[in-house]
Design a protein around this nucleic acid. Structure first.
Lengths: 353, 353
DNA sequence: CTGAAAGCGCTTACAG
DNA sequence: CTGAAAGCGCTTACAG
């Protein structure tokens, strides 16, 4: 009954089975095969059954690349990430890939070493006809943004935002979070604060610093110390070393991320022999897993990852469906997670315990 | 001079510039354009210059999808990962993506929640015509392996291996590492060891356990305690809680990975109030960043990530170039990183200090 | 070196 | 519901 398929032996590679082969085997046209594998396709139950049977027998797998060439939709989203090794971004990556997969999108991952590599990564992404691009912790040049806009490819920045209204963005409200930390530390009676900055020229670090320092100044607090730790453990460890070698060390340190805060705590307790929070309060940012470990009990401003990735997905998918939609920037508040590493205002202590 | 290009307004989307457009603008054929963008293409310097100029002016970007349809090479590699959130695998991912990008391959990432999801992930990968597949910490069914083999797509398992000689693999020699830890603890005079297993039915955990227990038995050591922590912090924390609630607690704990070891140490010191290594030695596996933090100083069997990913790349790229090459399995030794969390044999103490 | 033509594997109006 | 035909954007023998 079934047509005999003569395999045209193609050198070393086994012949790949194509919709044509399935059509032959099922005794229908390629159109019928295509419709069977397209979800809205109108096929009779009879032919659908024949096609499916033939496809299964031959081991047919539709070629997504060929399909996307004609549909102009690749169902791939480019995901550009700068520092996967940072536990915060590892969770962001996991969250995005889960959400993208759940809506049938595939993840074309670009890992960039330096933030500047982004303008080289994007053309490659565009060549692969991704339906959209998500960029975390980096910002593309306005020329590149222009190129993407012209190509009708929506771009979403994650944890960055730009003044020009050409690119969408989802970002924690870092300025507000910085202000909140200032209030918290002052209310608890700290008198000499320090800010431990992340990588230079990143809006995340800058905004957290600005909110923190501005609010400190508004309330007439002592001028805070500022040092820098490049967003990594070693950086936080070293910066805390400098901070506490001073004659006038701080009694509170606000770190621009948790990884640095953990490094700072190790320096403060293991090397300097100081107590946290009795001698010095430490507050971090992100809410990574280690912040909750009993060894640290780090008070931190948590970034709401799931909410942020959901908002980004919403913006992205809407613009993939309708590229004429204007860009949109959304800010998500950080959330205080109060733990043992910081002396807190009286009223909060009651609430926590 | 330059030909006037009339943009055919295509609804909302801006017209995408194609090799045809560039050909027109440069006054040459599509073939010439194609050759200019193919690295071995024979084009005169004159036409190459004209083509490049036209391409730049129009903002032409070759369509990689269309190209791969004809070349039968997508320059995409499927990367299947089970737990990006584990710092060890985050580093593996970063290492692979860096190496793949450096050889012009692009990463199609599949993040799977459960290890069993892998047989669903692979068909999707295959539909996108990836040139090969790397699977970390999971093992595909032999039926799926068969499918990949038939499609001529090389598959490399990372940190897994299979008996059937149909799939390549790169794996730490977990059995040998387990034996080494047994020797180490026994030589240092420990008398009651415990093994803290990872996720059930994973070869990594099983092999580490087997090597450890076998060697302990060979040397006539006391029967070791065994508990399970599912490869996560909370699991290690809880398992250590059970271990040290016993009347006969161990004086040494070998954990199947570092994340559990860190959890165990927090339980041992913060909750139980025991000292490490004075009361109990702790040894981990992987060599994650936290193992080196002063708060833990965790002695661990480090997996040589860079070497392992390099070997995997070697195997993969060779088989992409020549699919007839037979599968190959390579084992890489783990490396002891001696730190303060374990009492070590006398001779090693001298070497370390 | 160069161009016309065929074709990669699919989808999609268009008639029937 | 169904099939023949055109076409997505590219590359690659094949002649010249």
């Amino acid at each position: 009954m079934a047509a005999m398929i003569v395999e045209k032996s193609e050198g070393r590679e086994c012949k790949v089975v194509t919709s044509q082969d399935v059509a032959h085997a099922a005794g229908v046209s390629r159109s019928a095969v295509s419709r069977t594998f397209t979800k809205g396709g109108s096929v009779s139950e009879h032919t659908r059954r024949r096609v499916l049977a033939a496809a299964r027998k031959l081991g047919y797998n539709p070629n997504a690349i060929a399909r996307s060439l004609i549909t102009q939709r690749s169902n791939m989203v480019g995901l550009v990430m700068a520092d996967i090794t940072n536990p915060f971004y590892a969770r962001v990556l996991e969250s995005f890939s889960e959400k993208l997969q759940s809506v049938g999108q595939h993840v074309l991952l670009f890992s960039i070493a330096k933030v500047h590599d982004i303008d080289q990564a994007l053309p490659a992404l565009l060549q692969y006809q991704v339906d959209g691009v998500i960029i975390t912790s980096a910002v593309l040049s306005s020329a590149m943004a222009e190129t993407c806009a012209k190509a009708g490819k929506p771009v979403i920045l994650f944890n960055r935002y730009v003044r020009e209204t050409i690119t969408s963005a989802v970002c924690t409200d870092n300025v507000a979070a910085g202000r909140e930390v200032a209030n918290l530390l002052l209310d608890a009676g700290h008198y000499r604060c320090a800010f431990l900055a992340g990588t230079a020229n990143t809006s995340t670090s800058n905004d957290r610093q600005r909110g923190f320092l501005d609010r400190l100044a508004e309330r007439g607090a002592l001028a805070p110390l500022v040092d820098r730790g490049d967003y990594c453990y070693e950086g936080g460890f070293a910066a805390a070393g400098r901070l506490f070698a001073r004659a006038d060390p701080p009694d509170a340190v606000f770190c621009a991320n948790d990884v640095m805060a953990v490094g700072a705590m190790d320096q403060i307790r293991q090397v300097r022999g100081l107590r946290v929070p009795d001698d010095v309060s430490v507050i971090g940012f992100d809410g990574i897993a280690a912040s909750g470990w009993p060894s640290y009990e780090l008070t931190t401003m948590e970034q709401q990852i799931e909410r942020m990735t959901s908002e980004a997905m919403e913006i992205l998918m809407a613009r993939i469906a309708d590229p004429t939609l204007p860009p949109e920037t959304r800010f998500v508040p950080a959330r205080l997670v109060a733990r043992a590493s910081a002396r807190l205002p009286q009223e909060m202590l009651a609430a926590v315990s």
